[in-house]
Design a protein around this nucleic acid. Sequence first.
DNA 1: AAGTGGTCTAGACCACCTT
DNA 2: AGGTGGTCTAGACCACTTT
Lengths: 224, 224
Amino acid sequence: MRAITGWQEARDEALARIRARDWAPGERIPDEVALAEAWGCARATVNRALRDLAEQGYLERRRKGGTRVPLTPVRRATLTIPIIRQDIEERGQKPGYRLLSDLVETPPETLQQIMGTLPLRHIRALHLADDAPYCLEDRWLNPAVSEDVDFTALSPNEWLVGNVSYSEGTLAFHALPADAAHAEALNCAPGTALLALDRSTRAETPITWVRLTYAPGHRVEAGL
Amino acid sequence: MRAITGWQEARDEALARIRARDWAPGERIPDEVALAEAWGCARATVNRALRDLAEQGYLERRRKGGTRVPLTPVRRATLTIPIIRQDIEERGQKPGYRLLSDLVETPPETLQQIMGTLPLRHIRALHLADDAPYCLEDRWLNPAVSEDVDFTALSPNEWLVGNVSYSEGTLAFHALPADAAHAEALNCAPGTALLALDRSTRAETPITWVRLTYAPGHRVEAGL
DNA sequence: AAGTGGTCTAGACCACCTT
DNA sequence: AGGTGGTCTAGACCACTTT
């Protein structure tokens, strides 16, 4: 075999061996020093290649334990979370936005546990694609964060990304039936199955919790 | 400032500056050589830190163009895709499995475009958690791949991961109303909103397309 | 106790892209 | 044309974990 020149080449070579079961599931593969010598490259190059495969779930690595091909690989997919307006533009549609309500309220108890402080600013807004309902943004905001921001023309989604981003959080998908409010906003029948994305965001202090409920038929795609 | 010792420390320092808007959105940050000198570490360490942040969407890097803080950061979340049985076990529940049907059929036209060859092996199976319906696996398999495999006791999901994994594919979430078959299998009323995950897998040739339809109320969580 | 991956360093060359 | 990130190398030390 000719010498390997780059880490991507090393990665491809390793992946080929895994796929060919040359390195069988459960088996320990040669250590980095051995591979570096066999492939005629530096150990750091092998390391980069194997680390990359491990990040994708193709390998398991442990100090002293060596590197193994997992018996049951856990693949990872990547989900990109753009600003809603960008999302719509990338579909080649015209983005629109309408603020439905902006109140200070006491949230449901489940939310109180997540957000802590009370009361919260509760914003409901509709995003449009080519003038058709695209998704409903149902957001609870820590009032300390948003103060006097006017969400009449600018969606909280966009404002937050530009002003409070780079924070921690959780994200989950689920399905729910359209209630009366959904039905009216998204222009569908009550009970329609809708895809929803719940996301909570916090830095030192809780910032926001949001549920994006998409119009019927919407699909969220993930990479790899 | 005291010298930075590791790449994670460098990453944290950089992220702190981004969050503090010390490095403002749209702005170009110092180049790697400058940061390495300022932080008292090697350039490779800075590179690793900034590359990591760029992968997460916190920075945009271009040769000659330098490194910038994006005006509108696109965050990325990671979705782990375990074997269904493992998924159930990790919830502390007892996994179960029942094969519902295993036929060779002509798939709907939309699927023919994805899978190419005809006919396909069509398998429907139910996964159980603590004897309650967990998710319905509706799978179309390239017959050349599965040949004589018996899915009575072993789910296609598990067999594939162990035997044909390490392949390319796509993945998408959406919501759909339970039809009569869903309703019976998942023990819910017809029309119930259900979360579904469509996944297609291919190597050199199309391997399989599957829709996992989860029991009502199921949530799929993503990291960060 | 010892083996293996994790990482740092210093220097170098290269590829790409903006100017 | 030149600056910047992308990557390779060779060597070194360290941290973890299994033996």
